[in-house]
Each structure stands twice: as C-alpha cells, then as structure tokens.
Amino acid sequence: MGAGGGYTRQPDGSVVVALWLPGPHGGERGPVRVLVRAANRARALTRLRNLGLRAVYLRGNAAPPTPDEVTAVLHHPDGLLWRPAPAAEWHLWRPIAALLRPPPPHAAVT
C-alpha cells in the first residue's frame, strides 16, 4: 500500500503521522486519511501494521498533518483516527476500528 503523507513533531517529542491510504476491503470505501500519534515515525507505522495494514510506509513529508488534524488526534484517547478522503466538511474523524470492520452486507431486495 503506497502512502502519501507526512508527519509533524510535537513539543513533547512525540509525532503525528498523517497518511493517505486506499480503503480496505478492495478499496470499496475509497481512499482514507489516517492519523496516528506515537513516540516516533517507526512506532506510528508499526501501530498501523499491527492492525493489519501491512504494507504501509511513509516516504518524505509531502502531506504533513494540518493543525486541525493534529488537534483531532491529540484529543482522541487512542491517538489513531481516519476519515474518507477527500474529506467534506461533514466527514468526522472516526476511530480506526470503524475502518477495519467489514462493510455491512447488502440487503437483498425482495
């Protein structure tokens, strides 16, 4: 999974990493923006890999997190969020578990 993104270092030494990723489940949910807070970039990527996003990597710093994104991830207890991309104003940040669960089955029309 190639990833465009970037990171920013916080005053306490931690980092916030932001990545653009194709959506799970064959991309049927479209691309997503993922935010991760961790002690360093390597640990941020390890957190994502441990969730099953195995081929995640960060090259460069072309799309670092915006101040609003940093605020969102710093105020979330897990420090791991996502939302659809490109994000409309009404798309809220969601916990990563909501991204990783399988999509609901399509209801059969009778």
Rank of each mutant, 00 (worst) to 15 (best):
Gly79Asp: 04
Ala97Phe: 02
Val34Gly: 01
Ala107Met: 08
Arg83Met: 13
Leu92Cys: 13
Ala88His: 13
Leu21Ile: 03
Arg83Leu: 12
Asn50Gly: 12
Ala97Ile: 12
Leu80Glu: 10
Pro31Leu: 11
Thr71Cys: 14
Ala42Arg: 12
Thr46Leu: 09
Pro67Met: 13
Val34Met: 05
Val73Glu: 10
Arg94Phe: 07
His91Glu: 13
Gly52Gln: 10
Val73Ala: 05
Leu21Tyr: 02
Ala44Met: 03
Ala39Val: 10
Pro95Asp: 13
Met1Phe: 08
Thr46Ala: 07
Val56Ser: 06
Tyr7Trp: 02
Leu19Ser: 06
Ala42Trp: 01
Gly6Met: 00
Leu51Ala: 13
His25Trp: 12
His91Pro: 02
Leu35Ala: 04
Pro64Cys: 06
Leu53Ile: 03
Leu53Lys: 02
Pro22Thr: 00
Thr46Arg: 15
Leu48Cys: 01
Leu99Cys: 06
Gly27Ile: 07
Pro24Cys: 10
Val17Arg: 00
Arg59Asn: 10
Ala107Leu: 12
Arg49Lys: 13
Ala44Gln: 01
Asn40Trp: 01
Arg43Thr: 02
Gly60Gln: 03
Ala108Thr: 09
Arg47Gln: 09
Pro102Met: 10
Ala107His: 11
Val56Asp: 10
Leu53Asp: 03
Pro64His: 04
Asn40His: 07
Tyr7Cys: 01
Trp20Ala: 15
Gly2Val: 03
Arg37Lys: 11
Pro11Asp: 10
Leu51Pro: 11
Leu53Ser: 03
Thr110Ile: 10
Pro11Glu: 04
Ala44Ser: 12
Pro67Gln: 03
Pro64Ser: 06
Val32Arg: 06
Asn50Trp: 00
Val32Asn: 07
Thr110Ala: 13
Pro102Lys: 15
Gly26Ser: 01
Pro84Met: 14
Tyr57Glu: 15
Asp12Gly: 06
Ala87Cys: 04
Trp82Gly: 04
Val73Asp: 01
Asp12Ile: 11
Pro67Ile: 13
Leu99Asn: 08
Ala87Val: 03
Trp82Tyr: 15
Glu89Lys: 14
Asp12Arg: 04
Thr8Gly: 10
Trp93Lys: 09
Ala38Phe: 00
Arg37Tyr: 00
Ala63Val: 07
Asp12Gln: 02
Arg49Gln: 05
Arg83Val: 08
Ala97Thr: 15
Asn61Tyr: 04
Arg41Gln: 04
Thr66Phe: 13
Ala72Cys: 15
Met1Asn: 03
Ala72Asp: 07
Ala108Ser: 11
Ala62Glu: 13
Leu58Tyr: 02
Ala85Leu: 14
Arg29Met: 14
Leu100Trp: 08
Ile96Gly: 09
Gly6Ala: 01
Gly23Ile: 09
Arg94Pro: 08
Pro102Val: 06
Gly4Arg: 11
Gly4Asp: 15
Arg94Asp: 07
Leu21Pro: 08
Pro67Tyr: 07
Val34Lys: 08
Ala63Tyr: 05
Pro65His: 02
Ala98Pro: 00
Gly26Ala: 05
His76Pro: 00
Arg83Gln: 14
Arg54Tyr: 07
Thr110Ser: 14
Glu28Gln: 15
Trp20Pro: 00
Arg9Gln: 15
